[in-house]
């Protein structure tokens, strides 16, 4: 009984009461698209990865054009947030899932997730500052595909992943074409916006796009996130 009383007291005065324990699962819902290694971050209310209708930061651009999340992780660190290690550090294949289990977060924290969508020029999947509920339960969030507005969607797979370099860095499914002439060389909306989708074509030896219109298109939502507050 004495031990129990002490333990209870410890709990009452411990800052652990201000924390909560959550599990996160993200599922790539698409049939033919890949996500580059995902950023999972927990941070305060004032931190955002981006704002819709605003220009992308250089860090977001590096993620959306080349899958490099190190810049965004640095921004989260600098803002006092926490970057969480993804259990699936590889590219997330179509219809696959990744989980983060038993994560301790401060109450009133916000969750952000993002990664580049392949094969696209500067398309990304994102959850941008979602308030983690304090009430225990299972919460489901569906994520859309966005366009960073930093690169023309030429749909040419040429290895170009560095910021400002045209082209798509890779098609992990190796199920597209070659020698495309390019769908467009303009980016009409240079702000972050909802991605209009890949166009593609059915000419694997040329045409305007290196993507296959029967395989590389999508309809939103492209991902499902399940957060369980334990």
């Amino acid at each position: 009984m004495i031990a129990g009383a002490v333990a209870t007291q410890g709990l009452i005065f411990s800052p652990i009461l201000l924390a909560e324990n959550i599990d996160i699962e993200l599922t790539n819902l698409t049939q033919g698209l890949y996500f580059t290694p995902l950023l999972f971050s927990v941070h305060d209310e004032s931190t955002h990865l981006y704002q819709l209708g605003q220009p992308a930061s250089a860090e977001l651009q590096a993620m959306a054009e080349g899958g490099d999340i190190s810049g965004l992780q640095g921004l989260i660190d600098a803002a006092g947030g926490v970057n969480v290690e993804d259990s699936e550090p590889e590219v997330l294949a179509p219809a696959s899932s990744t989980q983060i289990l038993d994560l301790e977060v401060d109450s009133a924290s916000f969750l952000s997730i993002t990664g580049m969508i392949l094969p696209t020029n500067d398309g990304f999947v994102a959850l941008n500052g979602w308030k983690i509920p304090s009430e225990a339960g299972t919460y489901t969030i569906y994520l859309n595909a966005y366009d960073a507005g930093t690169e023309a969607n030429d749909e040419i797979v040429n290895g170009g992943g560095a910021s400002g370099t045209p082209g798509i860095p890779a098609n992990p499914g190796a199920n597209g074409g070659v020698d495309a002439t390019g769908v467009t060389f303009d980016e009409a909306n240079t702000m972050i916006h909802v991605h209009r989708g890949n166009v593609g074509d059915t000419d694997l030896a040329g045409g305007s796009s290196d993507l296959d219109s029967r395989i590389h298109r999508w309809l939103n939502p492209v991902a499902k996130v399940t957060v369980t507050v334990n």
């Binding site: 179509p94 395989i215 298109r217 999508w218």
Partner: peptide, 18 residues
Amino acid sequence: DVNYVAHHPGVVSSVDGY
């Protein structure tokens, strides 16, 4: 096909180049 269930990518149709 890929032999797994996923969300549908939509149809292309003949008016869209196919």
